Deep mutational scan, measured.
Amino acid sequence: TEHYTFHTEEQAQRAAKKFKKQGLPVTIHEKNGKFTLQVN
Score class of each variant (00 low, 15 high):
Thr1Gly: 10
Thr1Phe: 12
Thr1Lys: 10
Thr1Ser: 10
Thr1Tyr: 13
Thr1Met: 11
Thr1Leu: 12
Glu2Gln: 14
Glu2His: 15
Glu2Cys: 12
Glu2Ala: 13
Glu2Arg: 15
Glu2Ile: 14
Glu2Ser: 13
His3Ile: 14
His3Thr: 14
His3Lys: 11
His3Tyr: 15
His3Asp: 08
His3Cys: 14
His3Leu: 12
His3Ala: 10
Tyr4Val: 05
Tyr4Cys: 08
Thr5Gly: 05
Thr5Ser: 07
Thr5Asn: 05
Thr5Gln: 07
Thr5Lys: 05
Thr5Glu: 10
Thr5Trp: 13
Thr5Arg: 06
Thr5Pro: 04
Thr5Tyr: 11
Thr5Phe: 11
Phe6Pro: 00
Phe6Arg: 00
Phe6Ala: 01
Phe6Lys: 00
Phe6Gln: 00
Phe6Thr: 02
Phe6Trp: 04
His7Ile: 09
His7Thr: 12
His7Gly: 09
His7Glu: 15
His7Arg: 09
His7Ser: 12
Thr8Asp: 07
Thr8Asn: 07
Thr8Tyr: 04
Thr8Trp: 03
Glu9Thr: 05
Glu9Lys: 14
Glu9Ile: 15
Glu9Gln: 11
Glu10Met: 08
Glu10Asn: 06
Glu10Ile: 08
Glu10Pro: 05
Glu10Thr: 07
Gln11Phe: 04
Gln11Asp: 13
Gln11Val: 04
Gln11Ile: 04
Gln11Ser: 08
Gln11Arg: 05
Ala12Lys: 00
Ala12Phe: 00
Ala12Arg: 00
Ala12Met: 03
Ala12Pro: 00
Ala12Asp: 00
Ala12Asn: 00
Ala12Glu: 00
Ala12Ile: 02
Gln13Glu: 10
Gln13Tyr: 09
Gln13Phe: 08
Gln13Leu: 14
Gln13Ile: 13
Arg14Cys: 07
Arg14His: 09
Arg14Tyr: 08
Arg14Gly: 06
Arg14Asn: 11
Arg14Glu: 14
Arg14Thr: 10
Arg14Leu: 12
Ala15Ser: 04
Ala15Lys: 04
Ala15Arg: 03
Ala15Tyr: 08
Ala16Phe: 06
Ala16Ile: 05
Ala16Trp: 05
Ala16Met: 07
Ala16Asn: 01
Lys17Cys: 09
Lys17Ile: 13
Lys17Pro: 00
Lys17Asp: 14
Lys17Tyr: 09
Lys17Ser: 10
Lys17Val: 10
Lys18Leu: 11
Lys18Thr: 07
Lys18His: 12
Lys18Glu: 12
Lys18Arg: 10
Lys18Gln: 10
Phe19Asn: 01
Phe19Met: 06
Phe19Val: 03
Phe19Tyr: 08
Lys20Arg: 14
Lys20Leu: 14
Lys20Pro: 01
Lys20Tyr: 10
Lys20Glu: 14
Lys20Trp: 12
Lys21Leu: 13
Lys21Tyr: 08
Lys21Ile: 09
Lys21Gln: 14
Lys21Glu: 15
Lys21Asn: 11
Gln22Gly: 05
Gln22Trp: 11
Gln22Asp: 07
Gln22Arg: 09
Gln22Ile: 10
Gln22Ala: 11
Gln22Phe: 10
Gly23Phe: 03
Gly23Ala: 03
Gly23Tyr: 03
Gly23Gln: 03
Gly23Met: 03
Gly23Ile: 01
Gly23Pro: 01
Leu24Asp: 02
Leu24Tyr: 11
Leu24Ala: 04
Pro25Ser: 15
Pro25Leu: 15
Pro25Arg: 15
Pro25Val: 15
Val26Ala: 05
Val26Trp: 04
Val26Arg: 00
Val26Phe: 08
Val26Pro: 02
Val26Leu: 03
Val26Ile: 07
Thr27Val: 10
Thr27Gly: 03
Thr27Ala: 07
Thr27Trp: 07
Thr27His: 07
Thr27Lys: 07
Thr27Phe: 09
Thr27Ser: 09
Ile28Val: 06
Ile28Lys: 00
Ile28Gly: 00
Ile28Phe: 03
Ile28Gln: 02
Ile28Tyr: 03
Ile28Asp: 00
Ile28Pro: 01
His29Phe: 14
His29Pro: 00
His29Ile: 14
His29Met: 12
His29Arg: 10
His29Tyr: 14
Glu30Ala: 08
Glu30Val: 10
Glu30Arg: 08
Glu30Ser: 07
Lys31Gln: 11
Lys31Tyr: 12
Lys31Glu: 13
Lys31Pro: 00
Lys31Ala: 12
Lys31His: 14
Lys31Trp: 13
Asn32Trp: 04
Asn32Val: 02
Asn32Lys: 04
Asn32Ile: 01
Gly33Tyr: 02
Gly33Arg: 02
Gly33His: 03
Gly33Thr: 01
Gly33Leu: 02
Gly33Met: 02
Gly33Trp: 00
Gly33Glu: 03
Lys34Val: 14
Lys34His: 09
Lys34Ile: 14
Lys34Thr: 10
Lys34Gln: 09
Lys34Leu: 13
Phe35Tyr: 12
Phe35Leu: 03
Phe35Met: 02
Phe35Ile: 04
Phe35Asn: 02
Phe35Lys: 01
Phe35His: 03
Phe35Thr: 02
Phe35Pro: 02
Thr36Asp: 06
Thr36Arg: 05
Thr36Gly: 04
Thr36Val: 15
Thr36Ser: 06
Thr36Glu: 13
Thr36Cys: 09
Thr36Trp: 14
Leu37Phe: 04
Leu37Arg: 00
Leu37Gly: 01
Leu37Gln: 01
Leu37Ile: 11
Leu37Trp: 01
Leu37Pro: 01
Leu37Tyr: 02
Gln38Cys: 13
Gln38Gly: 04
Gln38Met: 13
Gln38Thr: 15
Gln38Asn: 07
Gln38Trp: 13
Val39Asn: 02
Val39Asp: 02
Val39Ile: 12
Val39Gln: 02
Val39Pro: 03
Val39Phe: 12
Asn40Tyr: 13
Asn40Gly: 15
